[in-house]
Design a protein around this nucleic acid. Sequence first.
DNA 1: AGTCTTGACGAAATCGATTTCTTGGACTTC
DNA 2: GAAGTCCAAGAAATCGATTTCGTCAAGACT
Lengths: 327, 327
Amino acid sequence: MATIYEVAALAGVSPATVSRVFNGQTVSAEKKRLVHEAATKLAFTPNRTARRLRGQSSEIIALLIPDIENPFFTALARGVEDCAREAGYSLVLCNTDDDPAKELHYLEIVASEQMAGVILAPASDEVDLGAIVSLGRPVVAVDRTTPYPVDAVKIDNRAAGIGATTALFEAGYRRIACIAGPAGIETTEDRFLGWRQVVAARKTVLHDGYLQHANFRVDGGRAAMRALLALDTPPDAVVTTNNLMAVGALQALAAAGIAPDVFGLAVLGELPFMALTPTPFVQVRLPARHLGRTAAAMLLERIGGDAQPPRTVVLRAEVNPREEQAL
Amino acid sequence: MATIYEVAALAGVSPATVSRVFNGQTVSAEKKRLVHEAATKLAFTPNRTARRLRGQSSEIIALLIPDIENPFFTALARGVEDCAREAGYSLVLCNTDDDPAKELHYLEIVASEQMAGVILAPASDEVDLGAIVSLGRPVVAVDRTTPYPVDAVKIDNRAAGIGATTALFEAGYRRIACIAGPAGIETTEDRFLGWRQVVAARKTVLHDGYLQHANFRVDGGRAAMRALLALDTPPDAVVTTNNLMAVGALQALAAAGIAPDVFGLAVLGELPFMALTPTPFVQVRLPARHLGRTAAAMLLERIGGDAQPPRTVVLRAEVNPREEQAL
DNA sequence: AGTCTTGACGAAATCGATTTCTTGGACTTC
DNA sequence: GAAGTCCAAGAAATCGATTTCGTCAAGACT
């Protein structure tokens, strides 16, 4: 690993001049040539650690997500990465497992690694951004919001819930249940509120137990669907508030021998590798990748020094009834 | 962001002493107390950049994978992360898109960021590890091997191919085709060799066109399956050499109205969110997460100074005919 | 008592790039 | 021709933690 000093020595100039060559400062053509020659000969790459120590910041942004195995978040990560790389930034992906302690740990790392900024899908409302915000590091909340005055990008979850439920209603279903995520998480809360609003407005049949809370994973969805099917008056359709729970619900339906066109299923989120039969009846596409791109763009603006008051961008989901779904 | 100097000043000791307190050196109890007090009062976190500059290495390991949206690689990443975090390391995930240029770019970053090591799923055989290897940074190749003398963890792909094909044969299929990945990629090459070996040994019917090469993605699998179905003598079963192509194949089958028990389908890889009907007939589980854990463990050993000659660990895949598949 | 060992701990060097300061020379300008 | 301006480029400070080196004092040993 050649250093700037070795390059300087070989080129017969001072280290300062070498630095100037690589940072677009005023250097004579002759020395510029010498430095470039020496640099290529030694395969010189500036040491980013030293640069960062001096410059107090790096070209790395962190993305904290609750579950790297959830396609929603990998699509989001992909969006962030695309945008970040275009701007010359690298991405560090951290898995928080929805655990506030891990989240906090990673936020500390962000600070002490002097990363340029963070995009965070908060594990809970109680996330402690105090330290990082007061440090002046840009933060963008994604998918969920926070009580702190930081930028946020989210989806209009209530509208998504309304859209899904309405689509089921218009398709003729009248006993529409809902498999919601863990209570207290904003994202799923809003989605289920959308469901409730439609169900109340349309005066559909609503039995006890039509609202199931589950964890955000496949097993949660499966258990919730089983519970629904076991009710005295089971529903004829269900809205699941995330992608993995929908998979679980489909599994439970399949196990019970119920075809998903008899039983209406609306999914909030994409089931990327499932575009085969059985297809859910209604799919509300959540623009995960776009979410990521938007968040990254906002973060980069902040990193560039933009100091306008915090913004919240709300993206709208797209409701696709089955007949419009392309294979 | 408090520095060690401020802590030292507040505690009335030298910066060296503060450093010693945090690095388990011999310091008197009294000063230790003073330093800890000062440190908590100032919310001191050591600046990792400075530490790294001095120590020439960081607690970050990089994982370079071709596609972050492929569940196989996210499971692998998960395995790496679990293992790394236990050891106090953080993980940087980089997406290479199977593009050698991006790969090289990230390898340069690894070097200039002074990361502790890299786990790499090489984009191609021509990956240039020369620079990083000669720098002495530990490298572990995962899923695919390289010509360089570095540790590697891979799957016994030929055995996986043999297992899948044999299972189909034993289930009575006699016209077994293969949808392989891009020519020249070791992983898929070995799998398809396994298929060929069984097909040759069992003397099954083998028509022109029974071997299809496709890209590793869903659309490739779909196109390949369409091509197979359009043959004069179409196969009655197919081995797909990765997970996404299997999804595409299932889609094409569904579109053609063919149930997957009539037509035998063997998949190398997991279709994690698809454990519903239609289920592929044979599934060869590739231990992705385990692959990640193993690679991380090996890398950490190297980082710890282990200097034994390069090892290659081969993990065996597990063949699950459908009846054994648990829901 | 005197030398040796040991241990705590401060001063200062170090990691490598960037960024002020400074300097010396070329070039204007009156 | 003297004074002022400008610019390339080297010397040195800087970022913050670690680590070597050296010092001083207390305790051990002969």
